[in-house]
Amino acid sequence: MSKKIHSKRRSFLFTATYTIGAVGLGATIWPLVDQMNPDSSVKSLSTTEVNVGNIEPGKTLTVLWRGKPIFIRRRTKKEIDEAAKVDLKDLIDPEKDSDRTKNPEWLVMIGVCTHLGCVPLGGKGEYKAWFCPCHGSHYDTSGRIRKGPAPKNLEIPKYEFVDNNTIKIG
């Protein structure tokens, strides 16, 4: 069997070769992995502008964003007051209503139940807000989880008012 004589000089060359080789291998593998990341056509759809000028108070508009439903609700005064009055101690996932909205009249949430991902039904449940039929989670007029297996409040996406009638989501 050939003896592996590693003198200090020799092993520097081999170490350098291995290192550069490893760098090359990594650089080769990266594109093969990155190609599975969202491509540029998908990324271009990552923001959506929605016209909300036609929504009346008490009505919810549902739009699709990144493949998920977004609930845009123009709340009535009653709903806003109800949401503000809730004691944080009573909440499974404590969060102030004012932290969940930029303008209290407009509630923008991702309509995906935080339990296992079903789409909650509007106007239903003990709080007359949202109810998830899959496993019985009840959300209040701020979209916060009040009763049932869901652990967190309905998620608020990144959004902003481009003007009074348009919301840009994402």
């Binding site: 060359l13 070769t17 090359g24």
Partner: peptide, 20 residues
């Protein structure tokens, strides 16, 4: 540039191994 560097290193490594 990378390949030329690597080629040089591999070439000398090969020579070193074969010198045994």
């Amino acid at each position: 540039i990378f390949l030329i560097i690597l080629l040089t290193l591999v070439y000398f490594s090969k020579q070193k191994v074969w010198s045994r």
